[in-house]
């Protein structure tokens, strides 16, 4: 089950780290970094159902359905 409540110990720190990781990259390099990041995180999550849920939210196709289940 995907966690949709706030779950990061320090959201601001993560957000800053994410921006830092992209600093100085060209657009192509930024896209490549994001693609690698998705694969790394997906493997860590390791659960297809959770990932499907995340994909739907990211795509914006099932925001409401998820709002009712959370």
């Amino acid at each position: 089950m995907l966690i949709t409540e706030p779950n990061l110990g320090n959201a601001d720190d993560f957000y800053a780290a994410l921006l830092r990781a992209h600093d100085g990259l060209s657009e192509d390099e930024t896209h490549a970094l994001n693609a690698r990041l998705v694969l790394i995180l997906a493997n860590h999550i390791g659960d297809l159902e959770t990932l499907d849920q995340a994909l739907r939210i990211a795509r914006g196709t099932q925001v409401e359905a998820d709002a009712t289940t959370s």
Binding site: H31, A32, A35, R36, V38, L39, I40, N43
Partner: peptide, 15 residues
């Protein structure tokens, strides 16, 4: 992009 991301990481990352 994702195909290349896989190939970029495959040597160093078993996953």
């Amino acid at each position: 992009l994702f195909r290349d991301a896989v190939l970029d990481m495959v040597q160093d990352h078993a996953f």
